[in-house]
């Protein structure tokens, strides 16, 4: 069961129109290392985890990623909602507009649609948790690229918050991995 809360996890303050930046930020809406991929990856991997701690951390980080997905969509929406077509033409957002208008859609910055092929889940908790730690590092790197591309202080502020969260998630997955490895050792020798 999931409960929706009618507010963002972190405030998004944007009053500018910037379709080109919106297109780049879609990388984290529907890209391989984006928030949707993260959420679906973690929530899918929970079932094969051998420790209570690992199941809990995948559930809770997976849930937080969905909140981040909403923050990303809100940023994108605010950057394009009032954009006249003349300000969209000739920008990287033009191809998105041709297919979706101003609606967000989960594809990456280059327009490649989100696919479950971006993620993996195996009946092997060690393999899963290593993937998750790599995913957090890749998401952190992506946020750093996006922060370099951003010329909007409101966007940069929200992206910096999201970047920080990836660092924390990486840490927690590392601890969950240690717990799973210890569990395997005790099973082997006792």
């Amino acid at each position: 069961m999931w409960i929706y809360e009618k507010k963002l996890e972190y405030p998004v303050k944007i009053n500018t129109c910037n379709p080109a930046l919106a297109e780049m930020i879609l990388e984290q809406f529907g890209g391989a290392d984006g928030e949707l991929a993260a959420g679906i990856r973690y929530l899918t991997q929970r079932f094969v985890m051998p420790t209570k701690e690992a199941i809990a951390i995948l559930t809770d980080i997976g849930t937080e990623e969905l909140a981040h997905w909403e923050i990303i969509a809100t940023i994108v929406w605010k950057l394009v909602k009032d954009a006249p077509v003349e300000k969209i033409k000739g920008t990287p957002f033009e191809a998105h507009f041709a297919a979706h208008g101003r609606s967000p859609f989960p594809h990456d910055a280059a327009g490649y649609a989100w696919t479950a092929a971006f993620i993996q889940s195996k009946d092997d908790p060690i393999a899963n948790l290593y993937e998750d730690m790599a995913a957090e590092q890749k998401a952190r790197a992506t946020y750093e690229y996006l922060i370099q591309l951003s010329d909007d202080p409101g966007v940069t502020d929200a992206l910096s918050f999201l970047r920080e969260r990836e660092v924390v998630h990486f840490q927690r997955f590392g601890e969950a991995l240690m717990g799973v490895e210890e569990f395997r050792e005790t099973k082997k020798y006792h």
């Binding site: 963002l8 996890e9 972190y10 701690e53 951390i57 809770d60 927690r172 969950a176």
Partner: peptide
């Protein structure tokens, strides 16, 4: 609410691996 909830989320994740 956002500030308090942030503290709670952060502690929640920490407690998941440090119960």
């Amino acid at each position: 609410i956002q500030e308090l909830e942030f503290a709670v989320i952060e502690l929640n994740l920490f407690l998941d691996t440090h119960p």
